[in-house]
Simulated scan of single mutants.
Amino acid sequence: MMNYVSVFNKINKTLEWFMIIIFGLLVIDVLFQVFSRYILGTSFTWTEEFARFALIWMTIIGAAYLNAKREHLSMDFLYQKFSEENQRKLSILIEVFIFLFALIVMVIGGLNLVYTTLHLEQLSGTLRIPLGYVYAVMPFSGFMIMCFSVYHISNIYSNKIL
């Protein structure tokens, strides 16, 4: 099990650094847009589109990262009222639902979206990059969430976490 823990931690660290890089590029992009607009007197249209795509990627990868850390938004008032054994069962059920959502909506739906946009050769308005590459973050993040859910279920089942 220790091997899975080290792989899990390395994946989390990689996602964390990837989000830091995206955020850094987003900050540089916005600062460049402000500088070019107010100092140079000209506006570059690609900066707005890049900022939008960076924010999409950071948000969706952030969802997988928070799922890995089990820090996603939840309302646990009713959950806290259950016995420890029922909390364990409910935690497994929740992880199964998260797994199924990630599989159906993010992976299957995301792959369909990526395939469709690549097949139709849709390009972004300003950067002229295939939109399928932008949307590829959806199935990637969904796959990561599925892996994290399996990891959490195994830990809950072995009484390591609730």
Rank of each mutant, 00 (worst) to 15 (best):
G110A: 06
H119C: 01
T47Q: 13
A68L: 00
F44I: 12
T42R: 05
I21T: 15
M146T: 02
A68R: 07
D29I: 07
Y133S: 01
S6F: 09
I156A: 04
F50R: 01
V7C: 04
V34D: 04
L103G: 02
I92H: 03
E49N: 07
S74F: 10
S83T: 15
F8M: 08
N112Q: 13
I129M: 13
S141F: 05
T59E: 08
I104N: 06
A136T: 09
I108Y: 12
L127T: 11
M106H: 03
I108T: 10
F23H: 07
V5P: 00
T117L: 11
G110P: 03
R88Q: 14
F23T: 15
K13C: 03
K10C: 07
A51I: 04
L118A: 06
L25H: 03
G110Y: 02
I56Q: 06
S36V: 10
I161F: 09
M144W: 01
F53N: 12
L127M: 15
E49M: 09
V27R: 09
A64L: 03
M19A: 10
E71G: 15
I161C: 04
V134I: 15
V150I: 15
N9D: 14
H72S: 09
V34P: 03
N159G: 05
E49D: 07
I61H: 03
T116K: 12
T47H: 12
S124Q: 05
L78T: 12
E48Y: 14
N9T: 10
E16W: 09
E121S: 14
Q87Y: 04
L25M: 14
I21C: 11
E48K: 13
G109S: 05
E16F: 13
T116M: 12
V7D: 02
Q33I: 08
A102T: 01
Y151P: 00
H72G: 05
F35H: 09
N12V: 07
F97E: 02
F99D: 02
L113A: 15
